[in-house]
Amino acid sequence: MRTTQEYFSAFFSGLGSLLKGMRITLGEFFTQKTTEKYPENRATLKMYDRFRGELSMIHNERNEHHCVACGICELNCPNDTIRVESDLIVTEDGKKKKVLKRYLYDHGSCLYCQLCVRNCPHQAIEFIPTFEHAVFTREKLCMQLNHEGSKLEEKN
């Protein structure tokens, strides 16, 4: 059996907490809304940096990338989304070396798990926040990520 004092203190503390809740929701009522009016604000829409839209290979301004065609990303991909095609060449000092020919990415089967990016030893690939990927056939989702005529950035 509760005492009379507990009855009244419970009543007033309850009332206070209800009013506090109502104050908070009223504050929320007048805050800026987070909804994006997407097709209308297409020109000004800014995606978040951490959003994973599609995989892309980082190229510098001299059209050079960091990919050494080691194939770790290909091994780590759970869906066989990535295929690395490489050539074996012999350099001037007689060493055999793998160079990237084509880096193929099937966007249609990508999970956006980021295992490829995390495991890349040279930070050659990243996820970029693009999001308008609708196309009419699946073939259009298969992309080559290394740019035409690009080569490995030499370390000095």
């Binding site: 929320e28 009522f29 809304k33 987070t34």
Partner: peptide, 13 residues
């Protein structure tokens, strides 16, 4: 509309 505004949304628009 009111529900949406309380939840930081815009509601039907």
């Amino acid at each position: 509309k009111v529900c949406a505004f309380f939840q930081c949304r815009l509601g039907p628009n």
